Computed example of a mutant assay.
Amino acid sequence: MKSSFEILAIAHNTLRIEADGISGLIPLLKNDFAVIVETILDLKGRVIITGVGKSAIIAQKIVATLNSTGTPSVYMHAGDAIHGDLGIIQRDDLVICISNSGNTPEIKVLIPFLRQSGNTLVAMVGDLESTLAKQADFIMNTTIQSEACPNNLAPTTSTTAQLALGDALAVCLLECREFSSADFARFHPGGSLGKRLYLKVADLAVNNEKPKVLPTASIRSVLVEITRNRLGAVAVLEEDKVTGIITDGDIRRMLEKYDSLEGITAHDVMGKNPRTIAKDELAVNALELMRANNITQLPVTDSGRYFGIVHLHDLLKEGII
C-alpha cells in the first residue's frame, strides 16, 4: 500500500503530464484549424462527430458542448456507423473523426464510406502518418508526448488533449457567432443555470400575495397583513407607489422601542425609501440586490407602481442561489 505522500505525488505528476499535453497543442494549431472553424460557420448541415472507445466518449462531450453553444451537432459511434448508422450523415454535414492512433479497425473501415459520401472529413488525430490523417480533408493535431498512465497505454493525456481541442473549437465558434448569454439561455431552459439567465422577478412575485397598507394604518393592521400573507413584510403605499416597507424585524425593533403601541402607525415604523426592483429584471439581479443590502424581501414595481414582493425563499426554491 502506498503512503499518502506517494499517492499525492502520483496525482501531481498525472496533472503535470496532462497539463503539458494541453500546452503542447498550442504550437500544433495551424491554419487547418482556422479553416475548419470557417467551414463550420458556413455549414448548411450539421457537425457529425464519431469515434471508438474513450474517443467516442470525448466525441459525445464535444457534441453536447457544440449543441449548447449554437452549433447543431450529432454523435455517431464509429462501430455503429458501419452497421447502419451511416444514415445519420446528410449531404451538407461535416464529419469529425476522433482517434488518437488514426488506425483503429472501425475507423479504417469507416473512412472509405465517408470519402464516398463527399462530406468534408476532419481528423482529430495524434498520428499524422495514420490512415485517418492521410485520408482527411483537414487535421486537428492532438499529438502528445506520453499518456499519464505509467505504462503509456491507458488513454489519459490523449483524451484530455482531445477534450481541450474540442473546447477550443466550440469557443472559437461561439465567439465568431457572437453567441450571447441570452442565446445560451435559450439552449439551457432547465436547471439553475438556465433560470439564472432567463427567470424574471415577475415570474416569482406573481405567485405571491401583495401585502400592502397605507401610511396611516394601525400597527394591528400591519401585523394582520404581515401574518396573513406570510412574506415577512408589507409594503407601505401612497397612490400605489411604494414609500416604505415594514418587515418582521421592524416590528421586533418597534416593540423594544415603544412601551405603548397606541397611536403608532405604519408611517412611524416603516423603512423609508426602500430598495425596489422592476418586475422585468432578472431574478438573479434581485438576489444580488438582497445580498448587497443584507435583506430578504424586495418590493417589486411595474412602471413605478407596486406589483408585489419577491422573497429570498422564492430564489432558493427556484435554485437561483
Score class of each variant (00 low, 15 high):
1 M>D: 13
7 I>S: 01
27 P>R: 05
27 P>Q: 06
34 A>V: 15
41 L>N: 07
49 I>W: 12
50 T>C: 03
57 I>C: 12
61 K>D: 07
65 T>E: 06
68 S>H: 10
75 Y>A: 13
75 Y>E: 10
81 A>H: 14
82 I>Q: 08
92 D>C: 11
100 N>E: 04
105 P>K: 00
106 E>A: 00
116 Q>F: 13
116 Q>T: 13
123 A>C: 13
136 A>Y: 08
142 T>I: 15
150 P>F: 06
156 T>A: 04
159 T>Q: 07
160 T>L: 05
162 Q>S: 13
163 L>Y: 08
165 L>M: 03
169 L>K: 01
169 L>W: 10
169 L>I: 10
170 A>K: 01
172 C>M: 14
176 C>Q: 15
179 F>A: 05
182 A>G: 11
190 G>I: 12
194 G>K: 03
198 Y>E: 07
199 L>K: 00
203 D>I: 11
209 E>N: 13
214 L>V: 11
215 P>D: 01
216 T>H: 11
223 L>G: 07
223 L>S: 03
225 E>V: 02
229 N>R: 15
230 R>C: 09
236 V>D: 03
236 V>Y: 06
240 D>N: 07
243 T>W: 10
256 E>I: 11
259 D>N: 14
262 E>P: 02
263 G>V: 10
264 I>C: 03
275 R>P: 10
275 R>S: 14
287 L>Y: 04
292 A>I: 11
307 F>H: 13
309 I>N: 01
316 L>V: 14
316 L>S: 09
320 I>C: 01
